[in-house]
Design a protein around this nucleic acid. Structure first.
Lengths: 339, 339
DNA sequence: TCTATTGATTAGAGCGCTCTAATCTTGTAG
DNA sequence: CTACAAGATTAGAGCGCTCTAATCAATAGA
């Protein structure tokens, strides 16, 4: 059996309560006793039992994190950042996945709640708002990559409309006028990105072209094939704004397969600035969401609520930035197409 | 305050103990009472408090998972799989990251242990064996992608030597004779992969060429440049076995930059079969570690220990397989080089 | 010398649950 | 009708800790 506080107390010749004070760094302990307790604890290899502590103190150091899809590097980055923030602040992360299914996610959420965590962060959840509301009644909840109306939950999002606009402005600045958006269908944030694209195009007095697609490389390929079938070469869009990086990679494949060069014939912009985009082999121009900042803001918002320092909801809308790499260039003299 | 068992008991007009039995699906409860309790619980929105439960029962449903690096899709996949296995078996995952630093990892490990978890799974840990031993004295420990001698810990690894051999055999079968390995330096499993490469080459009566590199795309680029500088074109290796997929992608970039075509002039094989390799744009021939199986075996091994069904250590060494895609081809008639 | 006063220490209740052992109900056999 | 086994229910201790209030020791003031 692992040593308990009682064991340490006995060995140090003090009471359990004193050991408790030492373990919590209370200032009202004499140096002599503190040293004795610390030594006894060391000798026994004692470690406080967080669960017992949390039960007795009616407070929790546990933060629940639900990730919609860990495989998505975007969330993995956020989780890493949350983890280090939590560690620094003395909190422990409990993590689980929702597997993109509302049912599984609902289960996962329940599991988290049964720990009576101090707070919960949901990364791009797909459960209905009512489920989130249920959770919010039990502890502070922060949503990342998902909006909410409820005044009891905070949200952190990137401004998808601004992100798409960034991409469009960049392409227009390079002389492109026929620009298409390969949209992400029902994926999180896809609608925003599409709206931003359309608005930006209109602002430039251009006609937005939208191809329904998906946030996968296959989706990008298929969409480009559709584009190739629908337009004669001289009329083909010279600029593509993909819903995300995977989609962009697929689009590039299909373009090259069709004998079109990137960026000489067609420029392509991705979204998310995943590690994929940064690969020199691809060197994808893409929109970067400030992941670190998003994670940090989410964490801070949560902690503020946990500490009861704030009751007003907070809505962070972060500004993305454009990372220009090698898949975009000035539209060519020939009109950027034909051949 | 959230309702407790006492509240449910009061509302259902029974004792707390009875509620406890119902919550644990005990068969020795009359249907009438069970229904009453369930209804009361429902009405109050009662949920058992896992921590209190674990404290009282002296058992834990918590499994600790430490991930060396979540950003690495390989581990993300394993975690996802572990999560679903855990959920199915009624366990909860507590996760944290070591950030590839032994110190941070040691902290993370301590945090996990302070939950008195039922067991711990370490994914490619970098802490010293002694630290693992300390953990193993507290609860069952399973190591993934790391070997151990201690009889109290189980391990799950892929057979890196066999994996490299697979790559070599494939290339030799395609007629390649000058084959180089871009090794992963100090990365986990890199030594094994190199040994496997060397052994396989010798088995074929060929001289192994090893370039010290890293498990990154930059590493792959640099290594190929070294190769290009060291060999005249006709003598350049026609086959490359990279330490992992990232490295392979970097290698391909550098080759193409130098005017060499993949796979016409040089064939390249990666390792890990990350989602990267599967992108049609890259279509990288690579060695696949059976991640799902690895996760499942790790979970099973842990649960067996947790349940006390086994005390003998278990050493799973999984056989990788080769996924042939588009970056390898028969060595060309011209000798596979020059020009 | 005696009482405040301050700081250090401890007793003891209790967090929400489980578990053992005891108690209460039945149903059934004698 | 009694006795008793089997099943259903509950009392109560206790898991490892925290927290309040009480106790104790030591110094200072009168």
């Amino acid at each position: 059996m692992r040593p308990t506080m009682e064991d340490v107390a006995a060995r140090a010749g003090v009471s359990r309560a004193l050991v408790s004070l030492v373990m919590r760094n209370s200032p009202k302990v004499s140096d002599t006793r503190r040293a004795a307790v610390l030594r006894a604890a060391e000798e026994l290899g004692y470690q406080p039992h967080v669960m017992a502590r949390s039960l007795a103190s009616r407070t929790s150091t546990v933060l629940g994190v639900m990730v919609n899809d860990l495989r998505n590097a975007f969330f993995a980055d956020i989780v890493e950042e949350l983890d280090s923030a939590a560690q620094a602040a003395g909190f422990d992360l409990i993590l689980n996945t929702g597997g993109r299914s509302p049912t599984r996610e609902w289960n996962a959420l329940h599991n988290l709640l049964s720990f009576r965590p101090a707070g919960i962060i949901l990364l791009s959840p797909v459960v209905p708002a009512s489920a989130i509301q249920v959770a919010a009644r039990q502890c502070p909840v922060v949503l990342v990559s998902r909006t909410a109306r409820s005044s009891t939950v905070d949200t952190v999002n990137d401004d998808g409309e601004a992100g798409s606009a960034l991409a469009v402005d960049h392409l227009v600045g390079l002389g492109h006028r026929r620009i298409a958006h390969l949209d992400g269908g029902g994926a999180a944030g896809a609608a925003q990105r599409r709206r931003g694209f359309e608005a930006a195009m209109r602002r430039h007095g251009l006609e937005p072209i939208v191809v329904r697609s998906e946030h996968t490389d296959i989706g990008g390929e298929t969409a480009v094939r559709q584009l190739l079938a629908a337009y004669s070469r001289p009329d083909l869009p010279t600029g593509l704004v993909s819903g995300n990086d995977f989609n962009a990679v697929g689009a590039i494949s299909a373009l090259e397969e069709a004998g079109l060069r990137v960026p000489e014939d067609v420029s392509v912009v991705g979204y998310d600035n995943t590690s994929l985009a940064a690969l020199r082999h691809l060197s994808l121009t893409t929109v970067d969401q400030p992941r670190k900042d998003m994670a940090r803001l989410a964490f801070e918002a949560l902690i503020e609520r946990v500490r009861g320092e704030r009751t007003e909801p907070v809505r962070h809308l972060l500004h993305p930035s454009l990372v220009v790499r090698a898949t975009t260039a000035e539209v060519s003299a020939t009109g950027g197409s034909s051949r």
